[in-house]
Design a binder for these strands. Structure first.
Length: 245
DNA sequence: GAGTTCTCCTCATTTACTTCA
DNA sequence: AGTGAAGTAAATGAGGAGAAC
């Protein structure tokens, strides 16, 4: 849109880095190499597809080139094989999309594996190695971090789903087990009496430990195991729910 | 200490380009 | 072969956080 507008306007531009453009705007524009002040009277109106191409720029007055949005980026990538190949709409007024070569991608990926953020010196070095602008390297790293985060979120989501499923299965199994144990109530077996005692003392893990020492560990172990598993299940669901929120 | 500016980051979105039906 | 939809990734813009002044 922005590119279209620029391609279609009369190329009479007079802008000042003042007014509605606050400090942020200024710095962001500076990052993009956009001039804060520009005056261009030399460009004739022409359709986008016939707009100035890179070679035209090379022959044109450098003073006029400065005002063309993104042009410097394109120039910097002239040596970039991929970039050349993909400039089908040669020199159109709109922004061009750089396509990184395999070698560039590999180098960037390697670098990203070593450190997911770059300090200015690393950024500059990498940019020189890749024959790209530091800003392009920076943008690549930003996008890469975003992609990585998105992938990790997907992985986490899958993991939580599986956790939820297995906890559900475990919960059903334990409920069944509990029901079976309760059914022993009918006979008032010694095991059920011990289960009742355990139920009143399950609040604190350290208490469980003490009781285990005080009582017959062999008999109580199974009961406490059930209690522990239930508690684990409850906390597991709680954590999963909290994570999901 | 509060206000301002700068730098760098994330996030959402746009856009150019590719792939595939 | 041509075309449109969907996908991908580079680029952009807004805004937040922290440091320096």
């Amino acid at each position: 849109m922005e590119g279209d507008d620029q391609a279609c306007n009369t190329r009479l531009n007079l802008g000042l880095g003042l007014g509605e453009n606050g400090p942020r705007k200024e710095r962001d524009d500076r990052n993009k190499g956009k001039p804060l002040v520009c005056l261009d009277l030399t460009f004739a109106l022409r359709p986008k597809d016939e707009a100035v191409n890179v070679d035209d720029h090379e022959r044109a007055d450098p003073a006029t080139l400065k005002v063309i949005d993104g042009y410097e980026d394109q120039c910097l990538n002239k040596e970039n094989e991929s970039s050349k190949n993909h400039h089908k709409k040669e020199g159109g007024g709109g922004r061009k999309k750089l396509r990184l070569t395999k070698e560039q991608s590999i180098l960037l990926e390697d670098s990203f594996k070593r450190h997911s953020t770059l300090n200015p010196a690393q950024k500059q070095t990498l940019a020189e190695q890749l024959k790209l602008k530091a800003r392009q390297v920076e943008v690549w790293f930003q996008n890469k971090r975003a992609r990585t985060k998105l992938k990790q979120t997907e992985v986490d989501c899958e993991f939580l789903k599986k956790c939820c499923e297995s906890l559900g299965d475990e919960n059903r199994r334990l409920k069944k087990e509990l029901q079976e144990l309760r059914s022993l109530k009918v006979g008032q077996s010694p095991l059920y009496i011990q289960l009742q005692k355990a139920a009143t003392l399950r609040m604190c893990p350290s208490c469980e430990k003490n009781i285990l020492k005080a009582n017959d560990e062999g008999k109580n172990a199974a009961v406490f195991d059930v209690v522990r598993k239930n508690k684990k299940l409850q906390s597991g669901f709680g954590a999963a729910a909290a994570h999901a929120n």
